[in-house]
Design a protein around this nucleic acid. Structure first.
Lengths: 266, 266
DNA sequence: AGGCAATGGTTCAAATAATGAACCATGAGA
DNA sequence: TCTCATGGTTCATTATTTGAACCATTGCCT
């Protein structure tokens, strides 16, 4: 393991629950030698990734992070475009919003927004690659993709949770069909206990699903009604999201996502 | 120099002007061996600090940055409190807003906001320590601090630009007096050519200046009128900023910062 | 007071991981 | 077809990282 990885790994020890850590805390959590940890902390501090509280000597996340994150938001075009729409979606929903892109059968993180103040939050790993069949995003993608993909996905062990059997073909087909007519995919406690989500696909310029947008929330916060409410918010932004990423939503899905009252009005 | 510092230094090569860099680009800019640079890039990518464009193979800033920056904003209390007020100030001013805290005679970065879309931006280094006498922030601090501080500051070579002579005592005293009656400090091209700023002090619970808030803008964008306009915006938020950081503004300065029409109305 | 246990931080020989010259593979352009 | 630049890899050499033991300071309990 590279020193770089070890040092950067220390940053992941900081969390909502533990915003400031002393040398000993870090040492314990990381399970490494104190001297090593100390040198890493100092190096991170020098680079501005951490800062040390002058009075308590505890370390906390540093200003270089906000600077570089700002840079990323302004310079990575995809993110820059998405930012506005998913931030307002997050604010409206009061929950975490994600956009992931498909790379093979991997769902890779593109951007997320978490514009709310709930003390209970869904944690997530922006560089993890969750299995397709364990997420609402994955199912949303499959439901709006050509049938052949499902066979490939079923054959690939990486699309299911490690150790789990391949999903039952009949059942999955039924669920995907339901998603296609309902307009969004849902998930309760499948990938991680206590986390639920709703998701819709994002379409590219050729109207093929190539990414997904999802809202994740603690299962405890939302019943059936909440879920439906979040799904409505999500679908209402569906066309905008695809357009922002340079794509177009097929007309029949635009229909599906348009709220009944607006459809009546037009 | 530690490997960690070398690797993290690579992140600083990414900028508004160069959002994506190939291996060779980074190698050239960093002036290090290709193999080394490559291993560093891979390590950073693995940690999510960079991501690689699948088609061009170029690297760009990665999602871990937004995640950690978000964490910082939510967990570092000072920043969390300040965020709202300085973000809206930045939006209103259409320029970069900074808050720095004094540590001895060092101006250390606390937080900044840059909520605007001008293509011409003031770049800055959140962990640099600019000399007091070369910044509006430094002068704002001194102008609202007890006189004894000025003597100490004049004696300390770190408070002026490297190589520059100590400021003329009479002149500086006149300028500080002017700042104290005007309510804000100003600066044109002193620290860096083409960058101007206006600044006010932030007061602690004992009504002593202990930090500063400034608006920086390209000199080319603002004449005298713009400067005065930005200063008014800044002063209008002055009391809120001090309160947010747990302090109180002395009454006579609240007066000074209150716009004439509001003073008339009350 | 005094002693105990944590804390943050430092040292230096031993061990491990970083380094870079040379190498390969691929693709664009002449 | 040849050339040049690119991204990426290898492996012996080298230099940096590592960690047990150490020190200094602080807070706590008797």
């Amino acid at each position: 393991m590279s020193t770089i990885a070890k040092a950067l790994g220390l940053l992941d020890l900081f969390s909502e629950a533990r915003p400031a850590l002393g040398l000993s805390d870090v040492q314990r959590l990381a399970g490494r030698d104190k001297a090593t940890v100390h040198r890493h902390l100092v190096a991170l501090e020098l680079a501005g990734f951490l800062e040390q509280d002058a009075s308590t000597r505890a370390y906390r996340l540093g200003p270089a992070l906000t600077r570089l994150a700002g840079m990323r938001v302004r310079t990575v075009p995809e993110v820059e475009m998405l930012r506005g729409v998913i931030e307002s979606l997050s604010r409206a929903a009061g929950e975490l919003v994600h956009v992931s892109r498909l790379q093979g059968f991997d769902l890779v993180h593109v951007h997320h927004a978490e514009e709310h103040e709930h003390p209970v939050r869904v944690s997530f790993d922006p560089y993890g690659l969750p299995p397709l069949f364990a997420t609402a995003s994955g199912k949303a993608y499959l439901a709006f993709s050509p049938g052949g993909l499902l066979d490939l996905a079923l054959a690939d062990p990486r699309t299911r949770l490690p150790g789990a059997p391949a999903p039952n073909r009949i059942e999955i087909e039924a669920e995907l069909k339901q998603i296609a007519t309902r307009g969004y995919a849902r998930n309760r406690d499948a990938l991680r206990l206590g986390v639920s989500s709703v998701a819709i696909p994002v379409f590219d310029a050729a109207s093929r699903a190539f990414a997904t947008c999802s809202i994740a929330f603690p299962t405890g916060r939302g019943g059936k009604a909440t879920e439906a409410h979040l799904a409505r918010l999500l679908m209402a932004q569906g066309e905008e999201i695809s357009q922002t990423m340079g794509g177009t939503v097929p007309p029949h899905i635009v229909q599906l996502w348009t709220p009944p009252q607006e459809r009546a009005a037009s």
